[in-house]
Amino acid sequence: MDINATLIGQALGFLVLVWFTWKFIWPPLLGAIEERQKKIADGLAAADRGQKDLEQAKNKASEIVREARDKAVQVVDQAHKRSGELIDEAKHTAVAEGERLVTAARAEVVTEAGRARDGLRREVATLALTGAERLLGREVDSRVHADLLEQLAAEIERA
C-alpha cells in the first residue's frame, strides 16, 4: 500500500467521471425511465378503462338484443292476431256475398215466375177468347166486351 501522486490523478479522474455522469448520463436516462413509467401507467389505466367500456358495451348489446327479441315476439303476436282478423273478415264478407247472391237469385226466380205466369195468362185468355168466338160463331169485339174479358182474365189469374 504505497500512497503517492497516483491518488491525485485518480481523484481528478473520478471527479470528471462524476461530473460527466451528473451532466450528461443521468438526466436523459432517468427522464426516459420516468416517461416510460408514466406511459405504462397511462396504458394500464387505458386498458382498465377499455375493460370497463367493453363491459358496458356488452351489457348494452345484450339489452338491445333482449329488446329486439321482445319486439319480435310482439310483432309475431300482432301478425298472428291480424291474420286471424283478416281471415274472419274474409269469412264474413264471403258469407254476406253468398247471402246477397242467394237473395238476388231468389228475386230473379220470383220475377221469372211472375213473367211466366203473365205469359201463360195471356195465352189462356187468348185461348179462351178463341174458344168463345168458336162457340158464339162470331167475332168478339174486344172493345165491346172488354169488361167481360177483363173479368175473365182476372178469374184466370186467380186460378
Binding site: 500512497i3 503517492n4 497516483t6 490523478g9 467521471l17 436523459p28
Partner: peptide
C-alpha cells in the same frame, strides 16, 4: 517518491472510465 505515478492504475482507470461513459452515454443519448 511521492511524486510518482502508477501508470498501470491510471491507464486502466482511464480505459474503464471511458468504457463506462461510452456505454452509459450511448444509451443515454
Amino acid at each position: 517518491g511521492f511524486w510518482s505515478f502508477h501508470a498501470d492504475t491510471l491507464i486502466m482507470t482511464a480505459i474503464l472510465g471511458v468504457a463506462f461513459l461510452w456505454m452509459f452515454g450511448a444509451v443515454a443519448r
